[in-house]
Design a protein around this nucleic acid. Structure first.
Lengths: 245, 245
DNA sequence: CGCTAGATTGACGTGTTTCAAACCAAGTGG
DNA sequence: CCACTTGGTTTGAAACACGTCAATCTAGCG
């Protein structure tokens, strides 16, 4: 590939995996330079999604997985009755749609929480390419496996933890994900409303709000609206793990 | 392969994928005959596990995934503190260990609930083979993807459902898994104690017991000890989905 | 035939939800 | 520029589902 040797920097930066700041976290992670080009060639860029727009709807035909480039999304599964369940938040470098691979349709809708850009990766082409590139194949396995472990952690949280532990865990986990991406782990912005947090954690909105207030009065965090400042990370981690009597 | 054209039937039945009654549900699902032989060649048979024995321990080095051949297993993840979490039950034809692929160690222990036999599949060899056999690769992707969706369903259950809905869902799901495997969906045996069910569903043992009793008094099921008889499947499914006032 | 792990049942306490209302920030239109 | 929405957040009081504690019962098994 590489047929257009010189373009404007900005375009390159936007358009190519090699220059993407996320390449060390994203699928190309383990690839050689020339392999990245092959991988790059199958990617489709998409117009940015605005807040509230759907990347796809539950039931849409599955064709592609998506890598988040900037912004954030939520995945919701609705089933018979109005009761939707929020099953995941996606941040930059994470892969969306892995849970649809063996189905003709996406099992849930994915919605932008803010202005969000993604790279579309047609799955059939990804699979073909993964035949030639063992590292890519490994990376796909790893991504899915990692998501499985995340889900198990989540199940543990929903099954065994108290509301306080859940929210503390949520904040610690988010903080960690930001840190890995090079952002401050102590100060960040929630892109989702309280209702989404509640739905995700299996708590009523009111409960989320109450616990936020409590954490503030204990000087663990300072949260105003969606701005989060973690004041005492150690204490927050303690809250997340065990809550003795 | 196929160098031993004639052996005793019983041995063949035990030892080869082609004659395994689960081949239509298991990994070889989509493979051609000759490909199955290749696949078969990398499998290691293991001595049966007795009830309570570990297939592997949390923290053991990850080398293989396992296909359940007969019996059943549970996966438990323990973390700092005594609080174990049961994250999955495995039935025949299901794949154990997929959540360890991108880690050096298994993230949880897997323990036999009864006498259980498994096929060991060294992962590096499986991965190599999947390079040559696109169908096999697809099958691995599908298995993982399916497990992801299962986990999401579980998250939804733990997050939003009442205790009654959880138990009803548990029974319906089990029933369905038995049906797919050619067993009666109405009459089966639970291989796990109540405590495990409770742990899995995020409920106290006592709650499980009480709801079992309640379901019985409503003539939805007849459960004595671990023998389950589903009397009114429609009602059970209704209970699993929504519980109106 | 008694022992012990597992299962059941009851009474009580409590964390979380639910219902209801007030509050707040950010738009929007007059 | 200020009422007036509108969507989201917070706070309070009451109801309830589930967990905990404790006792009893059952079944498998040496």
């Amino acid at each position: 590939m590489l047929e257009a040797p010189q373009r404007r920097r900005a375009v390159l930066h936007e358009a190519r995996c090699q220059t993407c700041s996320l390449s060390s976290l994203c699928l190309p992670l383990a690839l050689e330079l020339e392999d990245i080009d092959q991988f790059d060639a199958i990617i489709r860029r998409r117009a940015p999604l605005k807040k509230g727009e759907h990347l796809f709807y539950q039931g849409d035909a599955f064709n592609s997985v998506y890598a988040v480039r900037s912004g954030s999304l939520k995945q919701v599964t609705s089933e018979g009755g109005g009761h939707d369940q929020l099953t995941n938040f996606y941040l930059p470098s994470e892969l969306v749609g892995l849970d649809a691979i063996d189905e003709p349709h996406y099992p849930g809708s994915v919605i932008a929480l803010e202005t969000t850009t993604v790279c579309e990766i047609p799955f059939d082409r990804l699979d073909q390419l993964s035949e030639k590139l063992p590292e890519l194949r490994g990376q796909i396995y790893r991504s899915m496996s990692k998501e499985l472990r995340n889900d198990r952690r989540m199940m543990r949280l929903l099954s065994g933890k108290t509301a306080d532990q859940r929210l503390a865990t949520f904040l610690v986990t988010l903080s960690d994900r930001f840190r890995r991406r090079g952002y401050s782990p102590y100060s960040f912005r929630l892109s989702m409303p309280r209702a989404d947090i509640g739905n995700y954690l299996g708590l009523a909105v009111e409960t989320v709000s109450r616990i936020v207030s409590r954490f503030q009065s204990q000087d663990v965090v300072a949260i105003s609206g969606r701005e989060v400042n973690i004041l005492d990370m150690a204490k927050l981690q303690r809250l997340a793990e065990e809550e003795p009597a």
